[in-house]
């Protein structure tokens, strides 16, 4: 029995009794729309992730929402590849990603991406091209919008990467499995404000140093908190090593983030000092 015949059977027992073909289709569309839109809505409240593509590198920054005095962050100070493993992840030696949305879903996607990248390396003896890795994840995400009964991944990602075919690249993918390439973009809370700021200040052929400054400036304006610090911010760059010509990703450690903010004069001011000058 085809699906069409099934939908037209008025005697079928269960949920679809006396439901016409058209209404079944409509119902599916409606389910798709609310579930995916629900996911997108969740992301628009998540911590902001911002990416800027420069001529000699890519810059990512992310706002951490989960903070607190009692949160144990001792593991992020040393070991690993940097970062706190909350917002910015190393997917492969040539790709880093910032995530916004449901953290548990994000971890699962990151794991999938890392496996996909290593499988590509195993088959072809080359680092996976950035767009191909993006596609791999989007194929997975799309699948969860199509098959009934499953909830889509509530995650948007920004991918910053390098490959010899297209040099530096920045991609964005959303829960529906759509992806697109960008010069500068932003996901998560206040992404509208950030995007219009980026639109104003972005220049083609921007250098990595200028991109770092731009990212920090936009971040400081869009983040909810008044002061920037390593407990609220994750930061990463992807460049090419001038000696080895291999892509080099750097996910900043908390101390390095604070040093960077200080350098750009955006660090937390010492309140006592301010009181004295006032």
């Amino acid at each position: 029995m085809s699906a069409f015949e099934f939908a037209n059977q008025s005697t079928v027992q269960g949920d679809y009794t006396k439901v016409s073909c058209c209404r079944v289709v409509l119902r599916f569309q409606w389910v798709f729309t609310i579930v995916v839109e629900y996911a997108m809505e969740a992301i628009s409240h998540a911590g902001t992730v911002l990416g800027v593509l420069a001529k000699d590198g890519v810059v990512l920054a992310a706002e951490k929402k989960v903070t607190g005095k009692l949160l144990d962050l001792s593991g992020t100070k040393e070991g690993g590849y940097g970062g706190s493993g909350e917002k910015i992840f190393l997917l492969n030696s040539n790709v880093i990603a910032g995530v916004a949305g449901i953290t548990a879903d994000a971890n699962s996607l990151v794991n999938y991406a890392r496996t996909a990248a290593q499988r590509h390396l195993y088959s072809y003896n080359e680092d996976i091209p950035v767009e191909l890795l993006t596609q791999r994840l989007c194929d997975l995400k799309q699948g969860y919008t199509q098959y009934g009964g499953l909830r889509p991944f509530g995650v948007s990602l920004l991918y910053a990467g390098y490959d010899p075919h297209c040099q530096f690249q920045l991609y964005h993918s959303d829960p529906s499995g759509n992806y697109s390439g960008w010069k500068a973009t932003c996901i998560g809370a206040n992404n509208g404000t950030a995007q219009s700021l980026l639109k104003q200040d972005y220049k083609d052929e921007i250098s990595v140093e200028d991109a770092v400054a731009l990212v920090l400036r936009v971040m400081s304006k869009t983040m909810d908190s008044t002061t920037l610090g390593s407990e609220k911010l994750e930061f990463a760059t992807l460049t090419v090593d001038p000696v080895t010509k291999k892509p080099k990703s750097k996910i900043y450690r908390p101390a390095e983030v604070d040093a960077l903010l200080k350098k750009h004069d955006l660090a937390k001011k010492d309140e006592d000092a301010e009181m004295k000058t006032a």
């Binding site: 088959s123 072809y124 003896n125 080359e126 091209p129 767009e131 010899p164 075919h165």
Partner: peptide
């Protein structure tokens, strides 16, 4: 699928496998 061709080293590695 990938829009660009496999470069010779990658193609050779894949054929070898």
């Amino acid at each position: 699928r990938n829009t660009y061709p496999l470069p010779p080293p990658s193609a050779a590695s894949w054929i070898r496998r």
